[in-house]
């Protein structure tokens, strides 16, 4: 198969003192893939994700993200990825339009290009009536949709989503996944963490971190077959129960 690799890690490790947060993880993610990055609280997901985004230097091991080395080219890397966290993505006192324009500027897009892009995104989201309100006044579901669009405004190769759907209603949660599918369809690689196990089923492949290591990595179907269970929730519970280290 000739699928392009967008993320490749080899024995990627991060230690804090004598605590190994991420323990020699090796995996590949392909272009346009929706990759679910699962694990219990404290399993090492956030630490791994921060290394892949060029925000944290690994202790050892290697990783290429969007073709850039995470040790030597963290800044080039940052220009080619998008990142959305549940906690902080938008400036609350700016409007949706201002947030998008601001981030597009940070990513070095040209003024003319930014105007057109922001206009078309707002139109495609159907958020015209919200686009000039300060985002802190918007319902959470809209904030999350706008955050996602902002995270991919510069057409990154990969977008990292850290629990993007926590707390939103069931319809908005699904609309959010429609947006993820569309982005992946356009060739953007989606790297996503979630605590909703039905969402794990929407991923092309998922990995499951236990005690800093990758305990399993496969398609949801294959994992369910391997552990002889009906749902990803049961896969999660089986694997997470094997954890030795408690979430401290």
């Amino acid at each position: 198969m000739n699928k392009l690799i967008t993320i490749e890690t080899r024995d990627l490790t991060k230690r804090f003192g004598n605590f190994t947060a991420v323990d020699a993880i090796s995996f590949k993610v392909y272009e346009g893939e929706i990759f679910g990055f699962l694990g219990a609280n404290g399993a090492g997901k956030t630490t791994a994700m921060r290394m892949l985004c060029g925000l944290l230097t690994p202790t050892s091991g290697q990783a290429l993200v969007a073709g850039y080395d995470i040790y030597r080219q963290p800044n080039q890397l940052k220009a080619h990825i998008g990142y959305m966290s549940q906690k902080f993505s938008l400036y609350p006192n700016l409007t949706a339009r201002e947030n998008m324009t601001f981030y597009a500027g940070i990513y070095g897009m040209k003024r003319k290009e930014i105007g057109d892009k922001v206009h078309s995104l707002i139109k495609s989201l159907g958020v015209e009536k919200y686009s000039d309100m300060q985002v802190h006044n918007l319902p959470l579901g809209w904030k999350q949709k706008i955050s996602f669009m902002t995270a991919i405004i510069h057409n990154p190769k990969i977008v990292f989503l850290d629990e993007p759907t926590g707390g939103v209603d069931p319809i908005t949660r699904r609309q959010f996944w429609d947006m993820i599918y569309e982005a992946a369809d356009r060739g953007i690689t989606v790297f996503v963490t979630t605590h909703y196990m039905d969402e794990a089923e929407y991923c092309d492949r998922v990995s499951m971190m236990v005690d800093g290591a990758i305990a399993a990595l496969d398609t949801p179907e294959a994992l369910k077959t391997r552990y002889s269970v009906a749902s990803m929730n049961d896969v999660f519970i089986q694997l997470a129960r094997k954890a030795n280290r408690s979430a401290v």
């Binding site: 926590g166 707390g167 605590h195 519970i237």
Partner: peptide, 13 residues
């Protein structure tokens, strides 16, 4: 008030 938001499935159980 939302004691389990953002908590993984095992800890929630």
């Amino acid at each position: 008030d939302e004691p389990t938001t953002g908590v993984d499935p095992v800890s929630r159980k």
